[in-house]
Design a protein around this nucleic acid. Structure first.
Length: 486
RNA sequence: UCCUCCUUAGCUCAGUUGGUUAGAGCAUCUGACUGUUAAUCAGAGGGUCCGGGGUUCAAGUCCCUGAGGGGGAGCCA
């Protein structure tokens, strides 16, 4: 029987598996995940983690045609949906004709991550261009998409406006870390000024510019007119940090709301994070289930102490169903100083009011003491940013950090300093030239109002909902110090 | 950037106190197989033991050094 690909339109695997009716004739296109017994082709087209089993009568075809059905080849298959005679699937496709759209040489494939075998994450990272083809990264990136969509939906449904803040910034007052310079000056022979320094007045923008480290200050400007806004864009930090939770290029969500105080800000952040978790649980059940089972298998090989107390799905449920613990920095210090590890001198870093909390302290609070997400508020002003609102005690600021088990700081935010004189004083204390921020100060001059916002590290959120433990495995092409492949 | 561990076949790894010709599983190739599900069975091919230097009669193994990577820390989201 000869099929006509021009007439029949393609049905996605996801649709076939969900709605396919026995007797229906369909055309499916995808990639071969496995070909067993010269009879069973597992086809995946990315629409779902699940494969469609196509059954072929190899005796009807030439040997050369059959050998072209190899792992990773792109294939178009036309046939009829039938009840499966095997036990692993309800329905399967009885092949009437097939076309190899793209061959994949087996010897070459065997050197890639597409080889049907368990690989470690490092090898997969080296082949980031091919790792999309694996079950694991298919699941991760479908969930990454869902997370991204859930974020836009959450804000849109609640009347927020999506603001595109600049990626190239002329402000160096954001104070969130080292920046990447943006320049089109001749790197080998830049123009110099009278002092012998690079003369950025001759650069493209007529001044020194960098990639953004935060859209917050600009988002505040928009919030002071549009009321409720958020940003969702790329962020760049030129820090030489080499950890499983840092990237040089990452995505960040920064809501900013006029008339919100710190409590409103915490309510928003908590509701928002819970929404994302429930959205993924509702819309990515198959992918989540795969990741859940994978984690269980990995855990079973680990010593008990290193295993997750709750499995991935239960961790997400837990976040949705339980309130986050809210404590002040001062309370956190008290809890830590009364803790067993402190008394047994297990902490490497000192616990004293006025010093920042270290990773080991945050982990104790989140993973051992409260065993749930924790919001710590009202940190000493001395180690927080200039724009955070000074409290009545004049020692602490209206800051909030949300700490998640296994991830650490996932959200950092604050109520912003809306009082002109105090903000102006803070800017001076931080040695920021006032003319750099006159535009920012203007919002405090014309109808200033309390407002608050926070930043959510998108990849850290994706880590939490996928259970992946290295941030480089939740972004397609990670940028880290010394690495900018693809 | 600091501390620490690692680098052996395409992949995952084993390799004893330094001792003959470097091993396994998976993958690949060849053959068998009319219901597979990580298919199975038989056979074959596949190695700059990360690079460089040194100690030794002898180095995958010990020492020095360089590169790459993992984990932890700092910084942060």
């Amino acid at each position: 029987m000869h099929c006509n690909f021009l007439v029949m339109s393609r049905t996605e695997v996801k649709t076939v598996l969900a709605e396919g009716k026995v007797g229906e004739k369909i055309l499916v296109k995808g990639w071969v995940k496995a070909f067993r017994s010269r009879r069973f082709i597992q086809i995946n087209d990315g629409s779902t983690i699940n494969n469609l089993q196509a059954v072929i009568d190899f005796e009807k075809y030439e040997e050369e045609e059959i050998t072209r059905i190899s792992t990773a080849a792109a294939i178009a298959v036309e046939g009829t949906i039938v009840e499966s005679k095997g036990s692993g699937q309800a329905i399967e496709l009885e092949v009437e004709s097939f076309t190899i759209l793209g061959d994949a040489d087996s010897e070459e494939v065997s050197k890639t991550v597409m080889q049907p075998k368990k690989h470690n994450l490092e090898f997969l990272r080296e082949q980031a261009h091919l790792r999309f083809r694996t079950n694991l990264f298919g699941a991760v990136f479908r969930i990454r998409h869902a997370t991204s969509y859930a974020i836009h939906k959450y804000f849109n449904d609640r009347g927020y406006y999506y603001i595109h803040t600049p990626i190239i910034t002329g402000s160096d007052a954001e104070g969130a870390g080292e920046m990447f310079r943006v320049s089109n000056l001749d790197a080998k022979n830049p123009p110099l000024n009278d002092e012998g320094e690079v003369d950025f007045s001759q650069d493209f923008f007529g001044k020194e510019t960098n990639l953004t480290v935060s859209g917050q200050l600009e988002a505040e400007l928009a919030a002071m007119a549009l009321g409720k806004v958020y940003t969702f864009g790329p962020t760049f930090r030129a820090e030489n940090s080499n950890t499983a939770r840092h990237l040089a290029e990452f995505w960040m969500i920064e809501p900013e709301v006029a008339f919100n105080d710190l409590n409103d800000n915490m309510d928003l952040a908590e509701d928002f994070l819970k929404y994302i978790c429930s959205y993924v649980m509702e819309h990515n059940a198959d992918d989540l289930n795969f990741l859940n089972e994978r984690e269980k298998k990995e855990d079973s090989q680990k010593p008990t102490a290193e295993r997750n107390e709750l499995c991935l799905v239960d961790r997400l449920k837990f976040v949705v169903e339980n309130g986050f613990e809210r404590i002040t920095y001062t309370e956190a210090i008290d809890i830590l100083r009364n803790s067993k590890p402190f008394k047994k001198k297990k902490f490497k870093f000192p616990v004293e009011w006025g010093t920042d909390l270290q990773s080991e302290h945050e982990r104790f609070l989140v993973e051992k003491h409260f065993k749930k997400p924790v919001i710590i508020t009202d940190y000493p002003a001395s180690f927080k940013a200039f724009y955070m609102r000074l409290n009545e005690d004049e020692k602490t600021v209206g800051a909030m950090d949300i700490l998640f088990p296994g991830i650490g700081e996932i959200v950092g935010g604050s109520q912003r300093e809306e009082r002109y004189d105090i903000l102006k004083k803070k800017i001076a204390e931080f040695n920021i030239p006032e003319e750099e921020l006159d535009w920012y100060l203007d919002t405090r001059k014309f109808g200033t109002a309390p407002h608050a916002g926070f930043g959510l590290g998108f990849e850290r959120m994706v880590m939490f909902v996928t259970g992946m433990t290295n941030i480089r495995d939740v972004i397609p092409f990670p940028r880290t110090p010394g690495k900018a492949e693809f």
